[in-house]
């Protein structure tokens, strides 16, 4: 007799969510100071920027791609915004212009990937080089600072006792959730990730949608860049380095994967929480920032292997179990 299918949302969330809860429980039990309001607040703050970068990366990974340019785009957006501000452009205008520039960079690499079939990692990797180079050149390799007060207000202001950053993230994730679940564009993203050729045969505009995904990814990195500027009150070309890696880790740890159309916004937020919590826990037990990178890299690879091979692992285990049962009988 077949079991009734569980609620799909719950089913897809299960694994990573349980891992997160377990990790949270273990950390709270064994690490001093982990379970305190100050520290949890800290985790949230660390997760804030990452969550924005990761939701962009999520779109691209669902397509079976990768965006290696996010860190550099983050830095470039911050530097451009800083320089615009220092040249007396209004805050709103400079935010708009710099995010538009980030989206334009994403559109360029997306165009190359989708229409000229440049390999995705080459296009985004060299776009990262171009963005980093531009950011270094226009900032002269220095820190850009001395912004008007209003910049910090973006980060420090509170609405109903919660930092306004939280609301920005909430809105972005709400939009991402809606787009991925309930729009034609969203379902085509899952379809393209599955099998591109058949998606094309079904009349999905695969090329256009692929290009748009890279633009979204870059735009999210740009938003994170603005958040970084308002948080640090300064901008540097290299301030985003490494974010693309953590974003990829977060998306994959959250359980998003290309084949089978698994994952989405909710999974990504859990992945972000896992990465931020791991970082925080390792920090508290005094693991150096370099080793944290090593640990996250190892976890990423192991989880990726388990994720992608879970079907075959399940098959083998059921086979073994069956053989055992047959043997006993």
């Amino acid at each position: 007799m077949e079991k009734p299918e569980k609620n799909r949302l719950v089913k897809n969330l299960n694994g990573p969510f349980i891992i997160y809860l377990l990790m949270f429980a273990v950390f709270s039990l064994f690490i001093n100071n982990f379970f305190s309001a100050g520290n949890l607040n800290n985790v949230m703050r660390q997760a804030a920027m990452l969550s924005l970068v990761a939701i962009g990366q999520c779109f691209v990974i669902l397509l079976g791609g990768i965006d290696l340019s996010q860190g550099s785009v983050l830095g470039l957006t911050g530097v451009v915004m800083g320089i615009l501000l220092n040249n007396d452009v209004s805050l709103g205008m400079s935010v708009l212009l710099s995010v538009a520039m980030a989206i334009a960079l994403g559109l360029i690499s997306g165009y190359l990937i989708a229409y000229i079939s440049v390999p995705k990692f080459v296009a985004t990797f060299s776009m990262g080089g171009i963005a980093l180079g531009l950011a270094l050149v226009i900032s002269d390799g220095r820190v850009v600072w001395g912004f008007p007060e209003a910049v910090r207000w973006l980060h420090d202001s509170e609405i109903l006792g919660l930092s306004s950053v939280f609301y920005v993230i909430f809105i972005v994730y709400l939009i991402a959730f809606w787009v991925l679940k309930f729009t034609r564009f969203g379902s085509s993203v899952y379809a393209i990730g599955g099998i591109q050729a058949s998606a094309e045969l079904f009349g999905i505009k695969t090329r256009r949608n692929e290009m748009l995904c890279y633009a979204i990814s870059s735009g999210c990195a740009g938003l994170a860049g603005i958040m970084a500027v308002s948080r640090l009150n300064s901008a540097r070309a290299i301030m985003g380095s490494g974010y693309e890696f953590e974003a990829i880790a977060a998306v994959i740890l959250g359980g998003t994967r290309r084949l089978g159309g698994k994952g989405g916004a909710l999974q990504t937020i859990i992945g972000v929480l896992i990465v931020a919590t791991v970082r925080n826990g390792l920090n508290l037990i005094g693991v150096s920032i370099y080793m944290q990178q090593v640990v996250i890299g190892l976890i990423l690879i192991i989880v990726y292997i388990l994720n992608e091979n879970s079907a075959s692992i399940k098959d083998t285990t059921t086979k073994l179990l069956r053989r055992r049962v047959a043997h006993n009988a």
Binding site: G129, I130, G133, V137
Partner: peptide, 8 residues
């Protein structure tokens, strides 16, 4: 500083 840009 331009090297990275040109290489990309």
């Amino acid at each position: 500083l331009w090297q990275e840009f040109f290489l990309g």
